[in-house]
Design a protein around this nucleic acid. Structure first.
Lengths: 139, 139
DNA sequence: ATAAAATCTCTAGTTACTAGAGGTTCAAGA
DNA sequence: TCTTGAACCTCTAGTAACTAGAGATTTTAT
């Protein structure tokens, strides 16, 4: 297949044009060659790399994680082990986040339930937020 | 109680000194008076406001949410209703986040399980991330 | 009085992009 | 072949919510 423009790469991947340029700027995506008029022309290797980046981002990896993951690909030694490590660490962080959010959810639900079910008309989310004692011990 | 310095306010709340100045800069925290030597001196109202801000942040409200919540306090009309609305919207977002993270968690666990349990030695997180078909349909 | 700790302002860096200005190139139709 | 409009180019600055550091001044305690 013929080489393609940045707009085409954008359509193929769903990644916005400025974001593609950004990834190139920070060294995540290899610089493609340019036409005589200075426009970028991509090949399938760029498409693959970009998809790798996007999928990793969807899974919540940071650009630094991704940079590291990509470096591993080019240095065979211990490659799988290190990649697993990064993924495992990431999984751990996600589990922590989920736990934290579940706590928040409860606190917010309780606040709201109290407001809707309550009888006093000075019931208020604001009061709940101002009342430090409500969260004491949890944080 | 006597008025206190920014360092003392920091200790009372656990909020870092530069963050307190930052909140003042962006207009979230009222400017305190200054000593002749230009140092800030705070009073209990500042302590209360800062605690309100910090607790709201812990619950994941953005600084803009908090700004809005604080504006409500000074405009009685529909105050409770609006605050509930903000909190409810926030609760909704948190529920979405939890759902999304749970999906990620599964995908990552499966990736890792396949790597650890697998027999081939080219098993790799990187391969899983490169393989776009794995996530097709979910995203 | 002196010295250390705390404070001051200001700028710039972080993450992962997005938006806009102002100018150039490409591709398709007449 | 010419023209025109879409797509492209670079560069700067803005977003959220802070954090870090430089270099100067003030406060506090001995």
């Amino acid at each position: 297949m013929a080489d393609f423009s940045i707009g085409t790469l954008s359509k193929k991947t769903g990644c916005k044009v400025p974001t593609i340029r950004y990834y190139e700027n920070i060294g995540l995506l290899q610089e493609p060659y340019r036409t005589e008029g200075n426009q970028r022309r991509y090949q399938s290797k760029h498409l693959n790399t970009l998809r790798f980046i996007l999928h990793s981002r969807e899974l919540g990896f940071t650009l630094d994680d991704i940079r590291e993951l990509m470096a591993l690909e080019n240095s065979d030694a211990g490659k799988d082990h290190k990649a697993d490590e990064i993924a495992a660490k990431h999984l751990n962080e996600i589990e922590h986040k989920i736990t934290g959010l579940a706590v928040l959810k409860n606190e917010l639900s309780m606040m709201l339930k109290a407001c809707i079910g309550g009888e006093s008309n000075n019931c208020s989310v604001i009061d709940a937020l101002s009342d430090h004692s409500l969260c004491k011990g949890k944080h």
